[in-house]
């Protein structure tokens, strides 16, 4: 499996997330999924984590096996900076041979669809355009191929039919909106591919991570990236990157897997205080593969933030208080 050892690269990833508040905020509680998955394809050689205010970070494994860090900052503060320097060694994959007849493979998928953990990765999200999406998938006649080829086909479909366009969508954008826009970023591409794979009963999960191309030119650099893993019968989970129209192999570093973005959000948090905030994120990758090595500066790029002023909504507060009684 490891014949071309010299090609196994070490990625040095520097990831900075910075929140800045107009006025001091307090009682912040945060959760980070910034610890690369450790398995046969991915080793973590080193990781340094530093957070402003130096809180104690508690790390545990979640339901999907991801490492999650949690920390708080109760005192008033104007800034939250999360900085990770990670060295990851990836291994080139052996791709599925795909030599089992298609119908046996589909049969196998049928067999596992009521089993753990696949149930979670087959549950379809409800949205208005679902029927339309299903029809398109049906028209592609993906089921005539093997699940692997079907997944490739859908991956390409998303790549070809959707425009990569930064800044028009956010984590709040719904599937219906994405479907209408026919555009978005990696997260939206991944979201759509998830839905499409599920319409033909291929278990699919969301992956967050980094993309680390040897040379520039791939989409998703400079920030965290997102793609999809599909379950290929008699093989296992295989990554599909609809933003770059490729099968994931060696240049992607996985941080977390889950049902959707919500399960994998690299950084999330809450705070109290009547203040708006700005968010800047930067990811830079340097790599060593024995032949070349590069250092890149980490550029912080402003991110869209949603405005959420909760304290003023007393109606909702009241409705919450009224919660159903047992």
């Amino acid at each position: 499996m490891f014949t071309k050892l010299s090609l196994v690269p070490t990625f040095k990833i520097h990831h900075v997330t910075r929140y800045q508040y107009e006025f001091p905020v307090r009682e912040s509680a945060n959760q980070i999924l910034l610890f690369p998955i450790r398995d046969e394809y991915q080793q973590v050689a080193k990781q340094e984590l530093s957070i402003s205010g130096e809180p104690m970070v508690d790390i545990y494994k979640d339901f999907y096996g991801n490492e999650v860090g949690s920390f708080m900052n109760a005192e008033p503060h104007l800034e939250l900076v999360i900085d990770t320097k990670t060295e990851v060694i990836t291994t080139v994959r052996v791709l599925p041979s795909d030599d089992v007849p298609a119908e046996i493979q589909w049969e196998e998928l049928k067999r596992v669809h009521t089993q753990f953990p696949f149930i979670d990765f087959l549950k379809q999200e409800q949205f208005n355009a679902l029927d339309e999406v299903s029809e398109i998938v049906q028209s592609l006649e993906s089921r005539l191929h093997t699940p692997l080829l079907a997944a490739k086909q859908l991956n390409e479909y998303v790549f070809r039919n959707f425009t990569y366009n930064k800044g028009i969508t956010s984590v709040e954008t719904t599937l219906d909106e994405i479907w209408k826009l026919k555009a978005g970023v990696c997260q939206d591409f991944a979201h759509l591919l998830l839905v499409m794979l599920k319409t033909i009963d291929i278990p699919a999960r969301y992956v967050s991570g980094y993309i680390c191309p040897h040379k520039n030119g791939m989409r998703g650099e400079g920030a965290t990236h997102a793609w999809v893993e599909a379950y290929i019968p008699f093989y296992g989970w295989l990554g599909f990157d609809p933003t770059n129209n490729c099968i994931v192999d060696g240049v992607h570093v996985r941080l977390a897997v889950g049902r959707s973005f919500n399960d994998c959000s690299p950084v999330k948090g809450t705070y109290k205080g009547a203040s708006s905030h700005t968010l800047d994120v930067g990811v830079s990758v340097a790599y060593e593969d024995g032949e070349t090595s590069a250092e890149a500066p980490t550029l912080l790029v402003p991110q869209p933030v949603k405005v959420n002023n909760l304290s003023s909504n007393s109606y909702r507060r009241y409705m919450e208080m009224m919660q159903q009684q047992q």
């Binding site: 959760q31 949690s70 999330k268 809450t270 304290s311 919450e320």
Partner: peptide, 25 residues
């Protein structure tokens, strides 16, 4: 006496104003 979904806005319903962020930790 607060429902699961409202107990920790960090983990569950992010709009909850009844819970305490970080309590799950």
């Amino acid at each position: 006496r607060v429902d699961d979904d409202f107990l920790d806005p960090l983990i569950f319903n992010p709009n909850s104003m009844l819970g305490v962020a970080g309590i799950m930790s």
